[in-house]
Write a protein that binds this DNA or RNA. Structure first.
Lengths: 357, 357
DNA sequence: GTTAGCACTCATAAAGAGCGAGTGCTAAAT
DNA sequence: ATTTAGCACTCGCTCTTTATGAGTGCTAAC
């Protein structure tokens, strides 16, 4: 069977109608609304064809048709018009993001909230360290004779610190020595390389020194570990219930707990986003996670700098306004990329004000 | 009308029955179940009295009775038996908390999740800085000739840092000078005192130096501001839909968005927790926030050390197993207090391992 | 290839019937 | 003065029935 141009236009009309009304669409309403000048009977014939080809489905015999996942897929790939946001909308997105807090995870969280508010779907955001990180530099600051602060900077310029207390006394000169030791032996190493290095050191160092070193190094390992692990933030889960497909509490419940009780990362969408694509749409069964099998996900990725990418997305029924959602999402993603790219040092954004020269 | 002892026992039986079944309870079922040896007719009379006194309500003429908020209040205050958790349950709570991550906000988040899983109600956690904080100490670490890390330690021993880049060049000696300046002029000041101090300095300092100082100080102000602001984490919102009172999607929706789209702190429960109480129960209309008017909240507060207290709580229908929930919550709160109290320096918990002496 | 017409299907809404849990009241029993 | 048994009455549920109407598939004419 041939997928004629008219069939495509018809499919498009049906998808768009269904996106708005959430009701199965019948031949008649299409005949009236669509610009095409054909009768409902003809449309019925065409619709029967489209159904046979797998693009449409009937919820039951005497209802209208709804798009199948395959139908949505065709729509997304070929039929959908890229939606352009108004200046106003774009400005809003940028404003809020630029304005709000400066910490990486706060920004990401905030971005999720914006997306959710913008689209009326639950949103999620995950930051992914796709690359092996290493420690660039250690600094130790003496606080009093029983405690010091360890400051660790990674090669992606993230800086973390920790206050460490000791039972034994500690002098400035000891600390100096320690700093040198750390900076010569443990910089430039990945997470996996740190443990063996620590072992090697254990052999030819004083017990005392070794103890201190291992304290700081294990803190560094925590940081690397945490930064490389991906975590999901969801926001706006409440929006789910606004949509008619989730009036059924059971259905909503399932999805809701999947989203809010920190999702199992294994099947979570977005991890599979390959490097060259910026947005991705997963329709119904295309999702890996069981809980999302009749749910669609729209994803956009953004650049955090230094080879790291983050992913932000929304979750909703397969009847989703893909065009609009994709546009909004990609705007937010761009805005994020820009925000992070701004000074090449993402996790520690400078103040916009510069000191007097 | 007299509130006899029998009436109280009756009320208690009704509340407990209703907590389990979520159905209005009739005179007959009480007559059978309750240990009291009285007939259903007598119970009917008593129930009519209780209703007149405002402890019970009828959803409609020919249904059983359900407890009114006033009824729950009496139950909570006088009738409820303190629930004791099994050793096993207590151990679990402690284990998970002790085991999991070491960062303040992560712990709090985790605690929320545990509570939610434990009670099957959505939980929230908020950390409250009830006390004015000040900066105890500044350190600046030179990275290269255009950037340095500012490390700031508050009087509650929280340590934060930030990487700062400059257009102008920077030397180690300049940085040294700056550090001294900051430590003499800006330590021990509260958020409000910092701005005037900065102004004073502006008068008699070189423009260059002033610019640098103001960069670091405004970072310090951000920290103080953020630490003093309260924020809410919610978890397990999905559990809401498990309960029959939220089968009505509209009802659920309202509460859900209130909880998940960061709640307006103004009316949020828990802020009013006065110093001497450890747990608090807010029943239906006792809540300030409109969205919670027919919802109950159980709160427990825990000690973060240094005069700071955090609050953790769950949200659910007024038909809530107050005894059990309160017990679990208070166990988690104790566990948290202990966790933080452990070494007197909450936000920067040490490793459990100590270096060899 | 397109359209008009018509019989057929089937989800959904509205209306009615019957059920039964629960109440309030009255009158007898303790 | 309580307590209890008995009984008529209420009213939310559920189940069934009926009606409605949107939508389809098919056929025959254009």
């Amino acid at each position: 069977m041939e997928l004629t141009d008219r069939k495509k236009q018809l499919l498009r009309a049906i998808v768009e109608e269904y996106i708005i009304t959430a009701e199965p669409v019948g031949s008649k309403s299409i005949a009236q609304s669509a610009g095409m000048d054909i009768s409902s009977a003809t449309i019925r014939n065409e619709m029967a064809d489209l159904e046979e080809m797998g693009y449409l489905e009937k919820p039951h015999t005497s209802a209208g048709r709804i798009p199948s996942p395959k139908g949505y897929r065709l729509y997304v790939n070929e039929l959908m018009e890229e939606q352009r946001l108004s200046m106003e909308e774009t400005r809003q997105i940028n404003d809020v993001l630029q304005h709000k807090m400066k910490q990486l995870d706060k920004i990401i969280d905030e971005a999720g909230k914006i997306v959710s508010r913008l689209t009326n779907y639950p949103a999620f955001a995950l930051s992914a360290g796709t690359q092996r990180m290493t420690i660039r530099r250690f600094d130790l600051i003496l606080i009093d004779d029983h405690s010091f602060i360890a400051v660790v900077m990674t090669d992606t310029n993230a800086v973390k610190n920790k206050l460490i207390h000791l039972p034994a006394e500690l002098s400035q000169s000891q600390l100096q020595l320690l700093t040198t030791l750390l900076n010569t032996s443990f910089t430039g190493k990945t997470l996996e390389e740190l443990t063996p290095e620590l072992m090697r050191m254990a052999d030819h160092a004083a017990g005392n020194t070794y103890g201190l070193v291992s304290l700081v190094v294990s803190f560094a390992m925590e940081i690397l570990d945490e930064s490389e692990r991906q975590s999901v933030h969801t926001s706006g889960v409440g929006h789910l219930l606004e949509h008619p497909e989730y009036q059924d509490v059971n259905k909503a419940q399932k999805l809701l707990s999947y989203l809010s009780d920190d999702p199992n990362l294994d099947g979570f969408p977005g991890l599979t986003l390959s490097g060259d694509e910026n947005t991705k749409i997963l329709i119904g069964p295309e999702n890996v996670a069981d809980e999302l099998k009749d749910t669609s996900v729209v994803l956009a990725s953004y650049d955090i700098g230094d080879g790291m990418r983050g992913v932000i997305g929304v979750v909703g029924p397969t009847r989703m306004d893909y065009a609009k959602v994709a546009a909004k999402l990609s705007c937010v993603a761009d805005s994020l990329s820009q925000l992070f790219g701004q000074n090449g040092l993402p996790p520690c954004k400078d103040e916009p004000e510069q000191p007097h020269p």
